[in-house]
Nucleic acid binder design. Structure first.
Lengths: 193, 193
DNA sequence: AAACATCTTGACTGATCGTTCCAGACATGG
DNA sequence: CCATGTCTGGAACGATCAGTCAAGATGTTT
């Protein structure tokens, strides 16, 4: 081996993710990425391929980065009400802090899913994973007697994913954190949590 | 007056709205609009100004087109449960039919609200209008004894708007109408409707 | 020090972008 | 028929786009 890479490709991918997250696919130019990543134009192409591949890598990276903490938060051994409250509090906090970039996945799916099959697939997979994570939590709650034993769980899980999706949109149409808190509170209270 | 316009500027604006709706602002070129509207390039500029102004006009038009039917549907003199069920059924139907364009407002807000103040304002106004429409319905329900008299209504209205927003995203990440129906059903059932 | 593979630099391609200009076609009012 | 103003088609503008190419700089290995 001679002359190793002068930049960390994982760090640079994380930065690319943030650029795409802020501006979206079409509004982000290669030059934007060169400037923000501090990585040479040619090195970008050498390392990640073309713009499409880099974008999909960034979106996949986002999905991976989110999945861990989400899964972990929802797998906590605690009453479901407490787990869900903590989870949505955290999400509201994230969406309200700093310049609101919203949810990269929601931003991307709304803009590109109907025109790009790869994006649709990533979005669909993400949806299924979230569904599964919530379903797991709900099943434990049901086994602990926190939910009626005959209550179908999948629709509730879907509803919770949808509430997350909604928050990503709502956060972009208001700067009032109280709005987001109200939403999370009503969603959970109505379910009995 | 000599030689009146050869195209109806309102009809053309509606068509422009659909193009922007499908592809989004950045992915829509002036040439796309010229092709789809059948309106001459120069006439486009003469009639609507530049791309930004045309886009904002299209988004505003969408908001106007939506507002009437939504307000009307929510103002129906019928039990709130029935009104809300009908309303969300209709929305699920719209989101599932044909190539899913989702909600133009949600698509736009997620993509552009943090970078364009005009878009943010339109999105914020839309949010407030929906909040108000739901609040009106809930107030009538409360007066009719369908809701406890001490129950705060604004958070519920916000929750319902958020559920709408979420459906716009979720519809883009799945092709299974059942998912959307589950969500609407849980949202309303949990509220007691 | 020489050989080697990678990184960096900057110029370059062809395509497309939004926008403007212009000249001719056209329809109406006198 | 002629004048008036609008619509139309196409060419052209400068800017920017994604992506490529070749040459030189750099650091590691032998």
């Amino acid at each position: 081996m001679v002359k190793s890479k002068q930049f960390d490709k994982h760090v640079a991918l994380d930065e690319a993710m943030h650029v795409f997250w802020e501006k979206g696919y079409h509004a982000t130019s290669i030059q934007d990425l060169v400037d923000r990543l501090g990585v040479n134009r040619q090195s970008l192409y050498d390392t990640y391929g073309d713009k499409d591949r880099l974008f999909l890598a960034a979106l996949t990276r986002y999905q991976e980065l989110q999945h861990g903490p989400i899964y972990k938060a929802l797998a906590r051994q605690a009453p479901a009400a407490e787990v869900l409250r903590g989870f949505f509090d955290q999400m509201v906090e994230n969406l309200s802090s700093g310049t609101c970039k919203g949810c990269f996945m929601a931003n991307t799916v709304t803009g590109l899913a109907s025109q790009d099959d790869s994006v649709f697939e990533i979005g669909a997979t993400n949806h299924r994973q979230l569904e599964a994570a919530f379903s797991g939590l709900l099943l434990r709650a049901q086994q602990n007697g926190e939910l009626p034993p005959d209550r179908p769980l999948l629709p509730i899980a879907r509803f919770l994913v949808n509430t997350m999706n909604g928050l990503g949109v709502t956060a972009k149409a208001t700067r009032d954190k109280k709005v987001l808190k109200d939403i999370a509170d009503v969603a959970l209270s109505a379910l009995g949590f």
